[in-house]
Amino acid sequence: MTSSSRNPILITASRLLAPFIQLFALYVIFHGHFGPGGGFQGGALLAASILMLRLSVGAERSELKFRKSWGTPVGALGAMIFAGTGLLTLLLGGRFLEYHFLPLPDLSRAELHSTGILLIEVGVSLAVMAVLVAIYDDIMEGPGGD
């Protein structure tokens, strides 16, 4: 990406907008039980905010928010949170992804299911965000790009 045509209006507007998009993405992820939303949509919104910064302020300065080398590790971490929740319930005596075996006290069976859903939504959103950003970074990498 050449940095000769940096537009101050674009830079200011996108830097102003990005935190609000990320806040809305967190709302979409954590409010996914009670309204429209969930991990996939929130992850796509987080990726959109980071890609907007990548496009407007340039790759090197937007790396302060999300490094290029983080893509695949964070994606793997998200998938591991998901699979780890399933394995935890498996180890504690239940079947795979049977959330009411989670070791949390003072919660009813339905509330434990709700908590388990929240855990794997966080995992899904991390995986989706990291993979979408990683695909963009990989495509921009190379002789022509950057």
Binding site: F34, G38, G39, F82, G116, I117
Partner: peptide, 26 residues
């Protein structure tokens, strides 16, 4: 204990399916 049926189907009834989709994305 959550009113959003789509989320419950996605993450609870069909959680293993969603694990597969996440692995596909990864």
């Amino acid at each position: 204990a959550s009113p959003n049926i789509v989320t419950v189907v996605l993450a609870d009834y069909r959680g293993f399916d969603t694990l597969g989709e996440t692995v596909v994305v990864l």
